[in-house]
């Protein structure tokens, strides 16, 4: 079967948006997997209903495979699931109030399930991670230096990295180039040439903005879930 993935992130507890996406996916032909790349939770609203739905999907739902994101990392750290580390990144960027707001949005009964989520998935030659292998908060966009993007791909030895942290939708392909390297040691000198491998980094968006990826043709479709019945983006095959 030809695989077609749906990639979602940054729901931040928004069950209505998730429901819209599920409705969209029902109307989209051939979606085989739904990956949710973290930030299931957020500080602005109660997240329990969405977490319940993700843990216990409706019978008609495409079953989600979830990993954790930056907000889960903050919550889990603050709740003592990360050794001595606390929600330092959140505290530093948004202050103490933001930390207590986050704690209030998730019922502690969900913590063990959140803590069981993986950092990322490797599917075929693709990595699916909230940020990158460097850090869950790694903010990669199409503006990020290609040298850094290539480094993140190299670390995982994958051809495609799907990332969500920036909330942007983009599909940046590395199409060519190379580098010369000379190593001198006590045994002498050696030259080495390396070419840029054909690889890409894909930003999948956040919230209602999600991505469909056709594995066979390596094509991404950037969609937006909407409450209108005449959903845009249904035209593609």
């Amino acid at each position: 079967m030809i695989e077609r993935w749906a990639l979602v992130s940054g729901l931040l507890g928004d069950l209505e948006t998730y429901d819209l996406i599920q409705r969209d996916l029902k109307k989209t032909r051939g979606v085989t997997s739904l990956f949710i790349l973290g930030d299931l939770i957020g500080p602005k609203r109660n997240c329990d209903a969405l977490l319940d739905r993700l843990k216990n999907p409706h019978r008609s739902d495409l079953k989600p495979d979830c990993i954790y994101g930056w907000w889960e990392e903050q919550l889990l750290a603050e709740r003592g699931f990360r050794g001595e580390r606390k929600a330092d990144a959140l505290r530093l960027s948004q202050g103490e109030d933001a930390v207590s707001a986050l704690l209030n949005t998730v019922n502690p009964s969900h913590l063990n399930w959140l803590a069981s989520l993986q950092f990322g998935f490797i599917e075929l030659d693709c990595a699916l991670i909230h940020g990158s292998s460097s850090d869950v908060g790694d903010n990669l966009t199409s503006e990020t230096s290609p040298l850094i993007l290539l480094d993140r791909l190299t670390r995982l030895n994958v051809n495609r990295l799907f990332t969500a942290r920036s909330t942007k939708q983009f599909h940046l392909e590395l199409t060519g180039g190379g580098i010369n390297s000379q190593v001198k040691d006590l045994n002498g000198k050696r030259e080495q040439q390396q070419e840029v491998p054909k690889r890409s980094v894909i930003g999948i968006g956040a919230g209602a903005h999600y991505t469909i990826y056709d594995v066979g043709s390596d094509k991404t479709h950037f969609l937006t879930a909407s409450s209108q019945t005449n959903t845009k983006g249904m035209g593609f095959v």
Partner: peptide, 20 residues
């Protein structure tokens, strides 16, 4: 614990954006 000198030069990376 292995001494070496490595020079990295003449590097380039070409990119192309597939946009929405």
């Amino acid at each position: 614990h292995q001494p070496y000198v490595r020079e990295l030069r003449d590097g380039s990376i070409r990119v192309r954006l597939q946009n929405a």
